[in-house]
Structure formats: structure tokens, C-alpha cells
Simulated scan of single mutants.
Amino acid sequence: MSDHHAGSSLTSMARGGKAVYGAPLGILMLDARFPRIPGDMGNAQTWPFPVLYSVVRGASPEKVVLRQGHGLLPDFLEAAEGLVALGAEAITTNCGFLSLFQREISAHVRVPVATSALMQVPWIQATLPPGQRVGIITISAATLTPDHLAAAGVPSDTPIAGTEQGREFFRVLIKAEKTDLDIDLARQDILDAGRALVSRDPTIGAIVLECTNMPPYAAALREDLGLPIYDIYSMITWFHAGLRPRAWPRGI
């Protein structure tokens, strides 16, 4: 074989070792049956890039959000390991309350892991002018504990508002009282929580949405409050950008 042909074969070699290619991000999903509308993390059309999903059977939103995921860690570790074996180069989850498992999942799979949208709080705080702070809207303020916050690097005195008293969002997503979702009522629950948050603390300069089902309402909240809104979509698009940096053309 000539040197030319030998060089061509080397440069065109495709590397193996994965089961699935072209989707470096793996998402651990809770086991639920409510509608996942565009913008929801569990709707594959939300993402501008391919993703891999794995549903952790038995990990209901109620168990994870209201019972701190007790007994579910081995199931999440196994599912994360399965995603990596499938081809994922990084792992995220579809519930911000899984910040409690951040350290364990990361140690187990030994790839980058971002379990919770709450991990953005310190970054966003660094962007705000002096005297302003980040606030959090969560699906369940009553059960978002100091342990959840600490695991995500969030100060314990961060202002928080929840949707537990709303008419739709909490009832459908956590209590599973029905399988359909009134989108207008769900949007209103998010807006009400945002208004309550800023009315209690006028120093809030930006908001992070803990729940991965809240991004469909982020634009409405931004328009209503006039504040920057961050969520799992903003975090994971950033996260993925490091996995597949954009290749820029040379020259001008």
C-alpha cells in the first residue's frame, strides 16, 4: 500500500466503543405520566441536539420531591451507568430535587454530572449588581430542604417560592391527581409564585426555576416580572456546549 493510501486509511478511521452515537447527553427521567409539553425537559423536541433518556422505574415525582428520594439512589446509579454504557458522555436529571444525589452519581459514573437547575444559582449571583440576589421558584418549597440547597452550592438564605398552593401545577405533577394538564392554569401558578417571591423580597434581580417542567412558562414569567429567568434549559444548553463545542470556520 502506498504512503498516500496508508495515510488516508488512518485519517478516515472511525472510533468504536459505544452503542449509540451523536447524543452525548443522557437524561435520567422520573417515572410519571403527565403531559410533557414543548419546553419540558421530558419532551425530546425541546432540545436543539439529540439526547438519550432513561426512565428510573418507580421513581415517582412524589417520592423524589416529597420523600427526598429515599431508597432510590441505587436505581439512579444503575440508570446513569446504563446511559454511559449506551453512549452518554455526561448525565443530567429531570428533577431539581435530585441535587441530593449529585455527588454519588458523579462518583459512580465518572463523567460530568449536572443533577439540578439549582446549580446555576452561584453563577447567576456573580452576574448581578451589588444589592441584588437570586430567587428560586420550586414546585415544593416545603420540601426543598437546606440539604438540597447545599448539595447544589446554593446559600441557605436564598429566597424561595413554591407552587404547592396553586390550582394545577403541583396537583398534576406531584400529586398525580389526573393525567391531563391545563396549561393556562399551570402558567398562572408559575406567575403567582414569581409575583409572591418578588413581593416578599424586592432585592431579587434574577430567578432560577428549580423544576424541569417549568421552562415552558419562563418567557411569560420574564415578561411579567421584567427579570432574567434561568431554568434547566438554560443550564443544559450550556452544559452540552462544552460536550460539543461549535466548530468555527477559519479566516474571515
Rank of each mutant, 00 (worst) to 15 (best):
L25V: 02
L197V: 09
A126G: 04
W47I: 06
V172R: 05
V84F: 02
S9P: 10
D3K: 15
H240R: 06
S99G: 00
G131F: 12
D224F: 06
P155L: 07
A14G: 03
W47N: 01
G22D: 06
I105G: 11
F169G: 04
A79G: 02
A141K: 15
G42A: 01
D192L: 09
L25Q: 00
I183F: 13
E210G: 07
A161E: 14
P74R: 06
R133S: 13
V55R: 08
V20N: 09
S156N: 12
Q68P: 09
H70P: 05
T92L: 06
L149K: 13
A176Q: 15
S2F: 07
E223N: 11
S234N: 12
I204E: 11
I183E: 15
I174E: 07
A161F: 04
L173G: 00
P74W: 10
G242M: 02
P202Y: 12
A44G: 00
I183R: 09
A142H: 09
P228D: 12
R244F: 03
D182Y: 04
W47V: 03
I236M: 11
E223S: 13
D224G: 10
D3V: 15
G162N: 08
F101I: 04
L10R: 13
W248E: 15
S12G: 08
G251W: 10
G87L: 01
P249A: 14
L10Y: 10
D182L: 05
G242T: 06
K18R: 13
